[in-house]
Design a protein around this nucleic acid. Structure first.
Lengths: 342, 342
DNA sequence: TTGTATGCGTTATCAT
DNA sequence: ATGATAACGCATACAA
């Protein structure tokens, strides 16, 4: 009892291949009665379409665009690399991947860049961009144009995208807090929280999750107000330096976003970095170095390679109107230490 | 300039499809000079074979057998579930998966069961079994019979298998130690280590990694001799109870293997479980419950779903003599806490 | 409204 | 040693 094919369906339903195909792809021009017959045959035989054969016949090739923020960032570098790797692997058969860079902190610039996309030429987009009303609208337009839309690392409202690929920021923040509190067992002291900007939705969620666990489980630790350097790395040094010198009991540092290079440099100047517990997000060249040097104690990360592959699979599934294999697409919150560094 | 096909190669080389195919699949019966010509055309046009079309034409169906220890184990349950899930997903197109249960702690029994496999009927095996000389030989025989062989969770010597799917036990032990030491910051006390058996190679490696980090980084903690219950759960209660009552400064428990249910039950009786730091391996129903209840503080795990899918892909690749995509098959050491529980 | 015939890129059988 | 040709499971232009 091999897998049934369209031929088997046709025979069972007493119709031709073409009719089976019409029903399968919901094309017009079939009598209701015939549709029922074919449907019944499909159910009875348990037919499932061979997507690969279908794509072969259809000569279908997918074109996906990954939209990434431009500008120097060790994290974006990791993402680019993962995309590069995925597009040259066999998993990307019949899919070509393009990368579109969009400005940082310039919603209108993002929209303008997004408008250069020709929805007729591409099948799906994976977008990494902070949520703003302008971006929301632009993405909605892409989705309405029939593209498959996945959000990457940072989500947008459900109606404007098909799927979110990334971890839950709230849980990520909670996880960071758990580690911070556990690593500072018995310590009475303060914890500094640093981020580029608290505007982004995921920053807020992280902070929210972090605070909740810290307050509930680790009352001996005082979480200081968030230090926002507004995506201007040059401010990090002064901001961090000031707070560090004013906070004699500074025991921990939670870095919620990018800018870890500058942050670590600033902390080094305090000469107290070695006694501090530092927790950061995302595994990059910088945080990896930090872990190995013993300067960073834990990194909350997501498997970027897996994430990119997941995005490709999800977009493909959307294009084919096929269900995704949920378990495979689930992105876990990785905890990375010096000892389990990949 | 679409992707070149065998037709293009044939034309470029001035030969027929069949000849191209012979060269592509390294079949005999082609003159050296012709081979060169075809090879040149392949290089020149940058041909890459369409695996899906190939599999379609080949009508190849893979049969893989997963060899698992029988007997009750919450971890094996997880593995079975993952196999079930993988075999019903689209990733298992053209592959049928069977599970073969083998006795625990009975190398000869394992071998006998392995001998029931008909190497002609199957294409590959994924084996989860502790290393013994008998098992080694039996597996070597399978490999020599032409089967693709992957080891699962626990490795065998390189010559008898094609690929190991799982985490590095030594690093896993080191990771456990790091967390134990960090979670017990400032504490002077003892750490109990419990395992079913120290015979298995991976148990030894875990213990080795654990000890190394504990000794080097956490001198305030005393690691007690390993408690071996020799896979007899009924002994756990007495063993653990005795040591716990004799060790007033017991601060941590490292569970290296299975038997967590019994272990936790025994620890509960001491009425000191809540103050202890407990670290275990593998995310199962038991350890998950333990995390949620706050009884277990961290679990060192591997993504079993990913692992099973990886095994299937690797076996398939071996059967096709195709390279694997290493980055995708890398199994990470997961650290799971209450907050990042999947 | 339904059926026939052909092609997608690859493999495989059977001639030559 | 090499070439024609027919599958594989599906889609589709065209015919009926």
């Amino acid at each position: 009892m091999p897998k049934p094919t369209v031929h088997d369906i046709a025979q069972e339903a007493g119709v031709s291949l073409a009719t089976v195909d019409r029903v399968l792809n919901e094309r017009p021009g079939v009598r209701d009665r015939t549709i029922q017959r074919v449907r019944a045959a499909i159910d009875k035989l348990g037919y499932v379409r061979d997507t690969y054969a279908a794509n072969l016949a259809r000569q279908k090739a997918y074109t996906f665009v990954f939209v990434l923020p431009e500008g120097p960032s060790s994290f974006i570098d990791v993402v680019r690399e993962a995309i590069e790797e995925a597009s040259t692997s066999q998993m990307a058969e019949r899919v070509t991947i393009r990368v579109l860079s969009v400005p940082q902190n310039d919603p209108h610039g993002v929209v303008r860049r997004l408008l250069t996309l020709n929805p007729g030429k591409i099948d799906g987009v994976a977008i990494m961009a902070p949520e703003t009303p302008q971006v929301r609208d632009a993405v909605r337009r892409l989705k309405n144009a029939g593209l498959a839309v996945a959000t990457l690392f940072s989500d947008l409202p459900v109606p404007v995208r098909d799927h979110y690929v990334g971890i839950n920021s709230y849980s990520a923040g909670r996880t960071a807090a758990l580690l911070m509190g556990r690593f500072l067992r018995g310590v009475h002291g303060s914890v500094m929280v640093v981020t580029g900007s608290l505007q982004a939705r995921d920053s807020i969620e992280r902070r929210h999750g972090f605070d909740e666990v810290m307050q509930r489980d680790f009352p001996d630790l005082t979480v200081l107000p968030t230090l926002e350097f507004h995506d201007d790395i040059s401010r990090v040094d002064r901001l961090v330096g000031t707070v560090a010198s004013q906070t004699r009991d500074l025991a921990g540092v939670y870095s919620m976003g990018a800018g870890n290079q500058a942050l670590l440099a600033a902390l080094r100047k305090t000469d107290r970095l070695n006694e501090m517990t530092v927790i950061a997000h995302e595994l990059t060249a910088v945080t990896r170095e930090g872990l190995l040097a013993g300067e960073v104690d834990a990194v909350i990360a997501q498997n970027v390679g897996h994430l990119v592959r997941s995005a490709v699979r999800v977009l493909r599934a959307k294009c084919d109107s096929v269900d995704i294999f949920a378990a495979q697409e689930k992105i876990r919150i990785d905890i990375v230490t010096r000892e389990n560094l990949p």
